[in-house]
Design a protein around this nucleic acid. Structure first.
Length: 888
RNA sequence: GGGCGUUUAGCUCAGCUGGGAGAGCGCUACCCUUACAAGGUAGAUGUCGGGGGUUCGAUCCCCUCAACGCCCACCA
C-alpha cells in the first residue's frame, strides 16, 4: 500500500522559526497572564552590553532562561521575563572612541562631551536593536513591552533616587583615597575590575643611608625603584631585633636625598625582603594604610596618563618602564644598587584596558557597603535566597563577608552622571534627584554638576527594581511591581557573582527589605571543545547565530540545555549541535510517520479496557518522563530533563512503539487501527508538549498539525503532569522481557551474519506463562521486528533443539535451528564466554549471601535484592548449560 | 599566601542520602527494511587519578599524595 506524504524528509528550521516567533508575538503569548497556579514567576534577563554581537554565553543564558520560563508559563504561573540592555560604561565608550579615532582621527575631547554622547547614542540605537534581533532568532519568550535600557528614564530615576538616599544617609561619601587608576582609561576603577596577572620583573636591593649614624647601611628590597620619589618613610617591624633601634632616626632617600623618618609598623614582615620597607603612601595600598597610621605626607609622582610628574624630576614625563631603567642607571652610577634578581610577582591589570593599574590618590566617590553586605549575607544564610548549585554561595560569601567600600565614580562621559551639585558662590555641595536650577543654600544660579559618572554596576545593581518601574509610583503600578518583585530566579554565570548578584542583593534589600530574587541559578561558562575560554585572540569563538543558521535554533538550544546542569564548564563542540540537529530531525520524521494516520485518530483516548499492552506500556513510559522533566526543570537540571526525553523519543517511542504500530496500522482490523492512530496522536501531543520549553519551534510546528478541537498555541498549552493512574509495573516488566527476547533474536541473527531478508524459525523456552502468552500473541510483530517466520514457545522441561544458534536471557532461552549452516565452534565459544561472564557475576552475589556479616548487617531490602539477583543468574546459568548440552 | 573546584569508556560529561559502573558523540560489523542514511540492527571499550582508612560492602564518607583548573589577596 502506498502512503502519501507531502511533508519534506528533513525539517526546515528557518521557515518554522520566523513563522512561529511572529505568531507568538502576534498572540501576545509572552505577556504574563494569571493561570492555575495563582502565582507569578518572574525572571530578569542579565542585560547584554550594547557593545555589539551576542556570544555563546548569551545563547546559554537565553536558552536556560527561556526553557524555564516556557516551562513555568505552561505550568500555569503568571510568567514574566524582562529583557533589557546595559550601557556598559567603559566598554561601550571605549569601543565608540576607538571607532571614531579610526575613521576621523579624533578623540572624545576633540568632539566635546555633548557631541560624543550623541555619537554613542547613535551606536546604541543600532546595536541595541541588533541584539533584540539576535535574541529573537534564538526564540526567547520575554515580554518585549518591558524592555529597558539602563540609561532610560526610569532606571535613571532609580539611580538618582538611590544615590540621593544613601548620600543623605552618609553612606555615599567623597574622599581622597588611594584607588586603582587605569592610565589608559584615565579613570578610577573598582577593586573587582582589577585582574591580577603574573609578570616577570626584578627585585632591586637599594642602599639607604641613615643620617644619625653614617656607618649604618639600610638595605631595602623593592620591585619598583622608580617610586622612591614618592617615599615619605622607611618602615621596620618594631619587634625586629635587627632594626628596632633605628625607629625614630632619619633615612636618606637615594637620588633625591630627601630625609624621611624611620618608623615602626607591625605590617612589615620580618621574613620578607630585607625586613626594611620603603613607604610610598601615594602609590601603594599598604603604604597608604601605613601612612595613615603614621600620619605621613603623601607625594603624588604620577600624571593621569601614568607618566611621572615634576615631583620626580629625573624621570619626569617617562612611563614607568623607562623610568625604572633610568633610575636603575642612576643608582648604579651612585653605587647604591646592591643587587638585582629576577622575580615573578602578581600585578593588577585593568579588566577592560589590560594595562597595569597604578595605585594613585584621587578624589573619588565611595559607597560604604558594610551594613548592606551584612544583610545580604544573612539573606542567603537564612535561605531567603538560595544558590543552585549551592556551592556558589561560598564565592558570594567570600566577597560579602569582607566588604570594602565600593569606588563608584568613573572619570568617563558615558553613563549616569553623579547627581551631586556644587555652588560656585557659597561652596555648597548637595545631591539631588532632579537637576536643580539654583543652589540649595544661597539660591545662586552659578552651579555645576559633578563631571564624573557612576560605575556601570551601580545601575545594574538596581535593575530588579528599575525594570519594574521603581521609583516611579505610576510606572510601578503599571508594571506590577508588587506582584513581580521579588523575582523568582536569577540565571547567570559565576563570573559576575560579585559584580552583579551581590550588588543586586545589597541594593534590592536596602530599598525594599527583601532579596530581589528567591533563587540564583549559576550556569556553566561556555568554552571551546578543548576547554579553552572562547576569545577573539584565540579565534575559537562560536557565533550562536552561525549555529542557528547552520543547524537551526532548536538544535542549538537542545545542545545547550543538554549540557547545562550543575557543571561549571560547558565545552562546546559544534559536532554536538549536529548530533542534536539529528534528534530534532528524528522527531520530525516520527511525525511524518504518524501524519498519514491522523485523520483516523480520535481526539479522546478510548476506554482503558481497549488499550493494547503496547499502549499501556508507552503511556506508562511517557508518564515517567513527564515526572522526570517536571522535577528536573524545578531544580534547574536542564541536562536531566533533556536526557530523559531524548532517550524516550529514541529508545522507547521510535524504536519500539512506532515499529510495533506498523503491523496494526497496515492490518485489517479497522477498530485497532483507529485506536492505534489515536494513541500515536495522543503520545505525540504529549511529546511535543514536554519538549516545547527546550525546542519551541519544531514542537509548535508539529503541534499545529496535531491540534484537535481547540486552536491553542502550544506555547500557552498546559504542561504535561505526572499521572499516578498511568503507572503500570506489570506491563513494564512484560515489555522489557519482550524487548529482551526480540533483541536476543536479532543478536543471534547478527552473530551468524544473517541477512535481514532471511526468514527464520525460532524456538523459545520459558517458565513465564504470561510472557509465553504475550509472545504468542505478538508473533506478527516478531515477523516485522526480527523477520521471524515461524516458531514455538515451550517450557523448560521440553527437549532443546540440537546444534542451533542460541542465546539465553535470565527468563528465556532462544534457539534458531540452523544445523549445517552455522559454525558450531563459534556458537559454542559465544555461549561459553557468556557462561564465564555470568558465573563471575553469580559468584559476586553468592559470596555476599555466604557472608554472615552481610546477612547480619545489610538492610532486608538489599538482601532480598541480592537473593533475587542470585536466582536470575542461576536461571541463566542453567539455560546456558542446557544450550551447551544441545551441542553435544 | 588563602580558598574553591576537577580527576569515571577514545572525547564531552551524568552518577541523588554508600548496596551488582551509565549517557551522548566517536569507533567496529552488517544493512538504501515502505518515518528518517541527519537512518536502522548488532557489538567492543573502564586498575571510577595513586596510596591508606572507616564499613558486611566505597566511584560515593575520612586522611594523604599527585596532576590540572578557577577565584580571592596590599606590586617589599
Amino acid at each position: 500500500m502506498e502512503i502519501e506524504n507531502n511533508l519534506p524528509k528533513t525539517f526546515d528550521p528557518k521557515a518554522a522559526e520566523d513563522k512561529w516567533y511572529a505568531k507568538w508575538l502576534q498572540n501576545k503569548c509572552f505577556k504574563p497572564r494569571p493561570g492555575k497556579q495563582k502565582q507569578t514567576f518572574t525572571v530578569l534577563m542579565p542585560p547584554p552590553n550594547v557593545t555589539g554581537k551576542l556570544h555563546m554565553g548569551h545563547a546559554l543564558d537565553a536558552t536556560t532562561q527561556d526553557a524555564l520560563v516556557r516551562f513555568k508559563r505552561m505550568k500555569g504561573f503568571e510568567t514574566l521575563w524582562i529583557p533589557g540592555t546595559d550601557h556598559a560604561g567603559i566598554s561601550t565608550q571605549a569601543v565608540v572612541e576607538k571607532l571614531i579615532w579610526k575613521t576621523e582621527k579624533k578623540n572624545r575631547h576633540d568632539l566635546g562631551r555633548e557631541e560624543f554622547m550623541r555619537r554613542i547614542w547613535e551606536w546604541k540605537e543600532q546595536y541595541g536593536s541588533e541584539i533584540v534581533n539576535q535574541q529573537q532568532k534564538m526564540g526567547v519568550s520575554c515580554d518585549w513591552d518591558y524592555s529597558c535600557f539602563t540609561l532610560d528614564k526610569i532606571p535613571n530615576m532609580a539611580v538618582n533616587k538611590f544615590f540621593v538616599m544613601l548620600f543623605n544617609e552618609g553612606l555615599i561619601y567623597q574622599s581622597d583615597y588611594i584607588v586603582n587608576w587605569d592610565p589608559v582609561l584615565q579613570s578610577a576603577i573598582s577593586d573587582a575590575e582589577v585582574e591580577h596577572k603574573e609578570v616577570k620583573g626584578f627585585f632591586y636591593h637599594l642602599k639607604y643611608k641613615v643620617k644619625e649614624d653614617p656607618t649604618i647601611e639600610l638595605v631595602i628590597a623593592t620591585t619598583r625603584p622608580e617610586t622612591i620619589f614618592g617615599d615619605t618613610a622607611v618602615a621596620v617591624n618594631p619587634n625586629d631585633e635587627r632594626f628596632k633601634d633605628l625607629i625614630g632616626k632619619t633615612a636618606i632617600i637615594p637620588i633625591s636625598n630627601r630625609e624621611v623618618p624611620i618608623i615602626g609598623d607591625e605590617h612589615v614582615d620580618i621574613e620578607k625582603g630585607t625586613g626594611c620597607l620603603k613607604v610610598t603612601p601615594g602609590h601603594d595600598f599598604n603604604d597608604f594604610e601605613i601612612g595613615k597610621r603614621a600620619g605621613l605626607e603623601i607625594i603624588n609622582i604620577l600624571n593621569k596618563d601614568g607618566t611621572f610628574n615634576k615631583n620626580a624630576p629625573e624621570i619626569e614625563g617617562m612611563k614607568p618602564k623607562d623610568a625604572r631603567e633610568e633610575v636603575e642607571r642612576i643608582l648604579n652610577e651612585l653605587g647604591l644598587l646592591l643587587d638585582k634578581k629576577e622575580h615573578i610577582y602578581q600585578i593588577g591589570h585593568g579588566q577592560r584596558s589590560d594595562e597595569i593599574i597604578e595605585p594613585m590618590i584621587s578624589k573619588q566617590w565611595f559607597l560604604n557597603t558594610t551594613a548592606m553586605a551584612e544583610e545580604s549575607v544573612r539573606a542567603v544564610e537564612e535561605g531567603e535566597m538560595t544558590f543552585y548549585p549551592k556551592g556558589w554561595e561560598n564565592t558570594y560569601f567570600a566577597w560579602l563577608k569582607n566588604p570594602k567600600d565600593w569606588c563608584i565614580s568613573r572619570q568617563l562621559w558615558w553613563g549616569h552622571q553623579i547627581p551631586v551639585f556644587y555652588c560656585k558662590k557659597c561652596d555648597a555641595k548637595w545631591a539631588a534627584e532632579t537637576n536643580p536650577s539654583e543652589c540649595v543654600e544661597c539660591k545662586d544660579t552659578n552651579i555645576h554638576q559633578d563631571p564624573d559618572v557612576l560605575d556601570t554596576w551601580f545601575s545594574s545593581g538596581l535593575w530588579p527594581l528599575s525594570t519594574l518601574g521603581w521609583p516611579d509610583k505610576e510606572a510601578m503600578k503599571e508594571k506590577g511591581f508588587d506582584k513581580f518583585y521579588p523575582n523568582s530566579v536569577l540565571i547567570t554565570g559565576f563570573d559576575i557573582i560579585f559584580f552583579w548578584v551581590a550588588r543586586m542583593m545589597m541594593m534590592g534589600q536596602k530599598v525594599t527589605g527583601h532579596a530581589p530574587f528567591k533563587h540564583t541559578y549559576i550556569h556553566a561558562i561556555v568554552r571551546d571543545k578543548q576547554g579553552r575560554k572562547m576569545s577573539k585572540s584565540l579565534g575559537n569563538g562560536i557565533d550562536p547565530l552561525d549555529m542557528v543558521g547552520q543547524y537551526g535554533a532548536d538544535a542549538m538550544r537542545f545542545t545547550l540545555a543538554a549540557g547545562s546542569g550543575y557543571n561549571r564548564d560547558l565545552n562546546l563542540d559544534p559536532e554536538r549541535i549536529e548530533g542534536y540537529r539529528n534528534f530534532v530531525n528524528k522527531l520530525w520524521n516520527a511525525f511524518r510517520f504518524i501524519s498519514p494516520y491522523l485523520d483516523k485518530a480520535q481526539n479522546e483516548l478510548p476506554v482503558k479496557s481497549e488499550w493494547h499492552l503496547h499502549d499501556k506500556w508507552i503511556l506508562a513510559e511517557l508518564n515517567t518522563v513527564a515526572k522526570t522533566m517536571n522535577e528536573a526543570f524545578d531544580v534547574y537540571r536542564f541536562d536531566d530533563a533533556s536526557a530523559a526525553i531524548y532517550a524516550f523519543v529514541y529508545d522507547k517511542f521510535c524504536s519500539w512503539y512506532i515499529e510495533l504500530s506498523k503491523n496494526i496500522l497496515n492490518g485489517e482490523d479497522e477498530k485497532a487501527k483507529i485506536i492505534r492512530a489515536t494513541m500515536l496522536k495522543y503520545c505525540f501531543r504529549k511529546i511535543v508538549n514536554l519538549l516545547h520549553p527546550i525546542i519551541p519551534f519544531i514542537t509548535e510546528e508539529i503541534w499545529s498539525h496535531l491540534e484537535s478541537d481547540q486552536k491553542r498555541l502550544l506555547a500557552v498549552e498546559e504542561y504535561v503532569e505526572f499521572d499516578e493512574a498511568l503507572q503500570n509495573d506489570e506491563v513494564l516488566e512484560m515489555m522489557t522481557k519482550f524487548i529482551d527476547v526480540t533483541s536476543g533474536i536479532r543478536n543471534i541473527r547478527s552473530s551468524v551474519n544473517m541477512k535481514p531478508k532471511d526468514e527464520i524459525d525460532v524456538k523459545l523456552f520459558t517458565e513465564d506463562k504470561k510472557l509465553a502468552k504475550f509472545m504468542y500473541e505478538s508473533r506478527h510483530f516478531l515477523k516485522d521486528l526480527a523477520n521471524v517466520k515461524s516458531g514455538t514457545i515451550r517450557n523448560k522441561h521440553q527437549e532443546r533443539p540440537k546444534k542451533s544458534a542460541s542465546l539465553a536471557t535470565v527468563h528465556t532461552e532462544i534457539f534458531i535451528p540452523l544445523e549445517g549452516i552455522i559454525d558450531i565452534n563459534e556458537q559454542v565459544n559465544r555461549i561459553k564466554k557468556d557462561l564465564e561472564k555470568t558465573q563471575g557475576e553469580y559468584k559476586k552475589v553468592e559470596s555476599k549471601l555466604n557472608n554472615q556479616n552481610f546477612m547480619a548487617n545489610a538492610p532486608e531490602e538489599v538482601r532480598t535484592e541480592v537473593q533475587e539477583k542470585a536466582k536470575l543468574f542461576q536461571d541463566k546459568l542453567y539455560s546456558l548449560n542446557q544450550i551447551l548440552e544441545s551441542f553435544q
